[in-house]
């Protein structure tokens, strides 16, 4: 209970620090948003007026405090470029990115656990060498390249889907899911290869433990030992890895959205970076950072719950 409390406190402090760091970093960049917005021919008076309107003439800590309280209330700021609420710009895109992330995550879990158990339990030298080799190869393919391969192989050659023909979930939810399966696979396959590697070595490690010999001496079958006893121990490190994957998948989807032309948060982030639309970049970065920090926090809690030795001290 005490650890839970201190972990929560650490989470809040971390989020606070990250927000301050991000805000001041974006506030200190040399380019003045007012000049950028009005163009280089604008009169100094017009620039000054706009600065006042945007609130840029007030001291930094005040602006930070206002931004933070606004952020917590759901006011994510206003885009310089489109003069639009960032929250409004994000609303549809966030859902798409969340859907893609969830799909990728579910596929990663669904692929990695059975394959990892298989790789960990089969005791055949040739099978093992082939599995390890294949695994390393798959791990080395960057998701965005795998996405391009999928576009070519599954899209252009086999015509299972049309690359670029994205359907929004409001219009046709299942059509959207069907399209997102391919980008999700491109993210999930290399990611599961890493999880398989981890699970394989964890199972190998656990199979050599004394309690396995005990279970054998009770007459338990190898399958029941593997699934009922070994897997529970071997999954402990994998749980953390998979949970942290949720954070990695989110960034990978920035790249994958480019490959499959999915109008998600990643595309908005990239275009805002190109356009130097700082409030949008700041808001998205802050949201992603909050997501990542929270995921790490939850992963830690989950490990504690799953492992009685850590849970009970």
């Amino acid at each position: 209970m005490k650890t839970l409390f201190s972990k929560c406190a650490a989470l809040i402090i971390t989020l606070f620090l990250v927000s301050a760091l991000a805000f001041f970093a974006f506030a200190l960049i040399p380019a003045d948003p007012a000049t950028t917005m009005l163009g280089s021919e604008a009169t100094p008076e017009a620039v000054a007026a706009l600065r006042a309107q945007l609130g840029l003439d007030r001291p930094l800590p005040v602006r930070y405090f206002e931004w933070l309280t606004g952020f917590l209330r759901g006011d994510l700021g206003e885009s310089y470029l489109y003069r639009m609420e960032v929250g409004q710009m994000l609303s549809g895109k966030l859902a798409v990115s969340a859907l893609l992330t969830m799909l990728s995550f579910l596929l990663t879990v669904a692929l990695s656990i059975p394959l990892g158990v298989l790789a960990g339990s089969v005791r055949n030298r040739y099978f093992d060498a082939a599995a390890v080799g294949l695994n390393q190869l798959v791990m080395s393919v960057p998701p965005f390249f795998l996405g391009i391969l999928a576009c070519y192989g599954l899209g252009i050659v086999l015509k299972w889907f049309t690359p670029g023909a994205y359907v929004s979930p409001e219009k046709d939810f299942w059509g959207c899911v069907r399209y997102l399966i391919f980008p999700a696979l491109s993210i999930a396959i290399p990611r599961s290869a890493m999880a398989v590697k981890l699970l394989r070595s964890a199972i190998r490690d656990q199979l050599g433990q004394d309690y396995v010999r005990t279970a054998r001496s009770r007459g338990a079958s190898e399958t029941s030992i593997l699934l009922r006893q070994v897997l529970r121990n071997a999954l402990l490190p994998v749980i953390t890895f998979l949970a942290v994957s949720l954070a990695e998948i989110m960034t990978m989807s920035i790249l994958i959205e480019q490959v499959f032309s999915i109008p998600g948060v990643g595309q908005l982030l990239l275009s805002s970076v190109s356009n130097r639309d700082y409030p949008v970049v700041l808001a998205i970065v802050m949201l992603l950072a909050a997501w990542i920090v929270t995921i790490h926090f939850l992963a830690d809690l989950l490990t504690r719950l799953a492992d009685p030795r850590v849970r009970l001290g």
Partner: peptide, 12 residues
């Protein structure tokens, strides 16, 4: 993730 941080740095 380093790609996210690099994105931030590049945008700055």
């Amino acid at each position: 993730p380093s790609v996210l941080l690099a994105l931030v740095v590049v945008s700055l």
